Computed example of a mutant assay.
Amino acid sequence: MRQRIPFLTACLVAGVLATAPGCGGPSALRGAPAASSSVPATGDYSGQVDVGGGRRLYLSCKGSGGPTVILESGIHDSSDTWNITDTRPPVPDSPAVFPGVARFARVCAYDRPGTIRYSDPPAVTTRSTQVNGTRSLAAMADDLDKLLTTAHLPGPYLLVGHSFGGMITRLYAQRHPEKTAGLVFVDAFGTNIRQLFGTEWPSYVKLLNNPGTPFDSRPGFEKVDIDGAIDAVTAAKPLPEVPMAVLSKTEPFAAAPGTSKTLLATVERSWPAVQQTLVDLGSQTPHILATGSDHYVQVHDPDLTISAIRLTAGRINTKA
């Protein structure tokens, strides 16, 4: 189902805000998921997976075939961003990334705790158990590993990370090279960003964790130790030599009202260097520019995102 969504991306703020009216998520995602102790190897699955400590994470899977594709959303975003589209002419209507990838591979997405549903009105997800306080990147990567292990999803995985989600998939790959088949970075966050931002960095970090949603002050709303995340990736082992692809926006980040023009200028000036550093992580890594798209490339140009995932999957299969 094609849906036109008003986005407030404000330099990796990544959130759908409650000020965006009428952004109802796909009907298949509405309602509380059923608990399940097993995830089938093929076909549609939607439910909660016990990851220990009295916590459950919502997981949705579709399709069949390898490698298994794991979709990781940006900061504050639930898995809904992979199930909606907002294409404009001359780009034709396209299936959303989640069902599009399911046409050629097994694909799974999940809700991190405290992320926002693209429901009407938007709400913090109740599909995954709430976690209070600021989270470390290590804890988020550990959650991903527990989820994949408990669900018995066959690896190694093709990890697709949007925005800050690229930091999660990157640390996961560094910690679990044997479980990583490939990486696709969708306008992703990078470790050189702090240096590039200079004196604007503290303002940017504050904006990332407090993007101006009605949920900012809730204990369970996703907050991340951004500086610690950069330090964790920098200190970890190098990425495994696997096929990669980088997709990057060409249009400016949408700005929340009142956002500093100096900060926005810093973001736009720095972002190409962030993207190029991601390209340089691998050998012969395609750098694909999503012409006409802002930060949410998977929503505004889903067919291009699907194609990049398919290309990387094909290189994995060829290598095997």
Rank of each mutant, 00 (worst) to 15 (best):
L57M: 14
T87V: 15
F98C: 07
D86T: 07
T126M: 06
A229I: 01
L304D: 05
S283H: 15
N209I: 06
V39K: 01
T169L: 14
L247W: 07
T126I: 09
A232W: 05
S36A: 15
G220Y: 12
P257V: 02
L137W: 11
S128C: 03
V205S: 07
S79C: 03
M1A: 14
T87E: 13
K62D: 14
Y110G: 02
K223I: 06
Q298K: 03
P272Q: 08
K261R: 13
K319Q: 15
P219H: 12
H176P: 02
L196F: 06
Q3Y: 08
G161C: 10
L247K: 05
D44K: 11
L159H: 09
L247I: 03
S78F: 01
V184M: 13
A109H: 11
A35D: 15
V242S: 02
D120A: 14
K249M: 09
T234D: 14
L289F: 03
Q298S: 09
T9K: 00
D93E: 14
D86H: 12
L304T: 12
A232M: 05
E200V: 01
I226S: 08
M244W: 03
R112Y: 05
E200Q: 15
D50Y: 04
V124Y: 08
C11R: 11
K319D: 12
G22E: 13
V124K: 04
T129V: 11
V124Q: 03
S46C: 03
T266Y: 00
V69C: 03
R117T: 11
A102S: 14
A255M: 10
R106G: 03
Y58H: 15
I306N: 05
D280F: 01
G220C: 10
A188G: 08
S46T: 07
D231F: 02
D120R: 02
D120L: 04
F104A: 01
P92T: 09
I116E: 05
F164A: 14
N209D: 13
P113R: 04
K179T: 06
P243Q: 10
D216E: 08
E251S: 09
R2Y: 09
E72K: 04
G155N: 08
A105F: 02
Q275I: 10
A245M: 04
L289Y: 06
D301A: 15
A290G: 01
R112V: 04
P67Q: 08
K206Y: 11
L208E: 05
P302E: 06
D44M: 02
R2I: 11
W271P: 02
A255C: 08
R55I: 03
P257L: 05
H76C: 01
A102E: 01
A273C: 00
R2M: 13
P99F: 05
F98Q: 08
F98S: 03
F215Y: 13
A32E: 15
K261V: 01
P92F: 04
A173C: 11
P214R: 10
S203C: 00
V246K: 01
Q298V: 02
T87I: 07
G282N: 05
S136A: 13
S78M: 01
F104V: 02
A232G: 07
S260C: 10
A173Y: 07
T191E: 15
P238R: 05
P113S: 10
L159Y: 03
A20P: 02
D120V: 00
I70D: 04
K146E: 13
F253T: 08
V97H: 10
A14R: 02
